[in-house]
């Protein structure tokens, strides 16, 4: 129960952060990605601010045996670079660069009740499930 409440709180903070920083506005994101237009560096500060605080979390993790509410950390351990990582990142980059939505802002923007995020999220789920069926059969 504690874990569930914490997850809800973390989600609320994440959603607030995306809204305050205007990352739920795809034009704001594209303003960063479009370096040939009127460039908007805001996204770099969003990521920089997030990274600085998240890194404190990493330091706390490194200095402890287990998280407060669970018996172990569930953190990816892989270090190898494979074709799926690189190909997946490239496909994600194409989709992100087209629409200006990545998964977090797409989901959070549904709260506005605007049609765009709904289309994006339905297509996102369709893409994800397609790759689960086709790509992860082995």
């Amino acid at each position: 129960m504690k874990r569930e409440i914490l997850a809800l709180i973390a989600g609320v903070l994440f959603g607030l952060g995306l809204a305050i920083s205007q990352m739920i506005n795809p034009e704001k994101v594209l303003g960063f990605l479009d370096i040939a237009g009127a460039w908007d560096p805001s996204l770099a500060l969003v990521m920089g601010g997030a990274l600085a605080v998240a890194a404190i979390g990493t330091l706390i993790m490194r200095g402890s045996d287990r998280p407060v509410f669970d018996v172990r950390y569930y953190v990816p351990e892989r270090r190898d670079l494979d074709a799926r990582l690189i190909g997946g990142a490239a496909l994600f980059g194409i989709g992100w660069g087209i629409g200006g939505y990545c998964p977090g802002p797409g989901l959070a923007a549904m709260a506005i009740g605007w049609w765009e995020p709904f289309v994006f999220v339905v297509a996102l789920i369709a893409g994800s499930l397609s790759w689960k069926l086709i790509g992860e059969r082995d």
């Binding site: 190909g87 490239a90 989709g95 297509a123 996102l124």
Partner: peptide, 8 residues
């Protein structure tokens, strides 16, 4: 765009 983000 959404489909590519989902696959990727």
């Amino acid at each position: 765009a959404g489909f590519l983000v989902g696959v990727g």
